[in-house]
Amino acid sequence: MIRFGIDFGGTKIEAAALNAAGEFVARVRKPNPGNYQDALEVVAQLVTDAETMAGATCARLGVGLPGSVSPKSGLIRGANSVYLNDKRFGEDLAKRLARPVRVTNDANCLALSEAADGAGSGERVVFAAILGTGCGGGVVVDGQIIEGRNGFAGEWGHFPLPWPKPEEYPGPDCWCGRKGCLETWISGPSFSRDAGFPNGQATMEAVAAGQPNAVAALDRYVDRVGRALAVICDVIDPDVIVLGGGMSNVDALYERLPAAIAPHVFSDVFETPVKKATHGDSSGVRGAVWLWPSEA
């Protein structure tokens, strides 16, 4: 059986189809147009393109996107692609495509994909963190996404930075209306801004060259991510932490983060591994595909 999914990102939207073995039989991308109606049309076109490439019909669609769906109103909330907020994206897309659609947070999709056959394979409790344009999190337990009673479990991007230092308080303004959210400290753009470079690649090149401001910014970044993940560990004590998003390509994080987390957890032992997403930027769309079980 071939299943289809959409990864709705801030800059691009991707559709993919996977066969029963979890292998890609179609994968297509288009730029995100940045407004609601055009984005619906881009998704519809991508589904058609993926069907043609896969030689199969999309009977049902899974979608991962920023934000979450309110179980009370059915509206998208908390999306940093703010034009999605207060819209019935799943319902509108289902009407546009004339087929069932399931929608969840993109970090949930990352966690589901990596728990199924990636860096979290074989583990009971998987926490996945997206450290990219924004900052998100997802929890999978025994192969099932945990969304919680109110539908926002794992959404750590708008926690305040834990144990803030004097120079970190109250923190930068966040698009959500609060100050000092994790997204303002540990997203990719935040890291680059702190170092004084235009993007992550330039920043890491400066780190490799030993430029003091870049090296110091990476030290601060590791410390802040460590503090943030310690709170997650205190709450759910995951078997593995999986990183996705652009900052997951910074190899130093996997060596340094366990030691940055350990002093802040409320425990005498901390052995939880921090791993890079096995499927990289494919994990989001793979997880969206897995939102529909094969027998559905």
Rank of each mutant, 00 (worst) to 15 (best):
F4H: 07
D7V: 04
T11V: 06
K12W: 01
A15D: 02
A16V: 05
L18F: 14
N19H: 04
G22T: 01
G22C: 07
K30R: 15
P31Y: 11
N32F: 12
N32G: 09
P33S: 13
P33T: 06
G34P: 03
G34I: 07
A39T: 15
A39H: 03
E41Y: 10
E41K: 15
V43S: 09
Q45F: 05
V47N: 08
D49I: 06
A50M: 11
A50I: 05
E51K: 11
M53F: 03
A54E: 10
T57A: 15
C58E: 02
C58W: 04
A59Y: 09
A59C: 09
P66T: 10
P66I: 08
S68E: 05
V69E: 07
S70P: 04
L75S: 01
R77S: 12
G78Q: 10
G78V: 00
A79G: 05
S81D: 02
V82R: 15
F89C: 01
L93V: 01
A94V: 01
R99I: 04
V101L: 06
V101S: 07
R102T: 07
V103K: 02
T104I: 02
N105D: 09
D106L: 02
N108V: 01
C109M: 08
C109A: 13
A111K: 03
E123P: 00
R124C: 08
V126S: 09
F127P: 06
G138H: 10
D142V: 05
Q144T: 05
I146T: 05
R149S: 15
R149W: 12
R149T: 12
F152I: 02
A153Y: 02
A153E: 01
G154N: 10
G157Y: 06
H158P: 00
H158G: 01
F159P: 00
P162Q: 13
P164Y: 15
K165N: 11
P172C: 11
D173C: 06
C174D: 02
C174S: 12
R178I: 00
K179W: 00
E183I: 00
W185S: 01
W185R: 00
S192W: 07
G196Q: 13
P198F: 12
N199Y: 07
N199F: 05
M204C: 06
V207G: 08
A209T: 00
P212Q: 11
A214G: 11
V215T: 14
A216G: 09
L218Q: 13
R220D: 12
R227Q: 02
L229W: 03
I232H: 04
I232C: 13
V235G: 05
V240C: 11
G245H: 06
G245D: 04
G246H: 08
A252F: 05
L257R: 01
L257S: 03
L257D: 00
P258M: 12
A262Y: 13
A262S: 14
V265N: 06
F270C: 04
P273F: 14
P273L: 12
V274F: 03
S282K: 08
S282A: 15
S283K: 02
G287K: 03
V289P: 01
W292N: 05
W292R: 10
S294L: 15
E295Y: 08
E295H: 14
E295M: 09
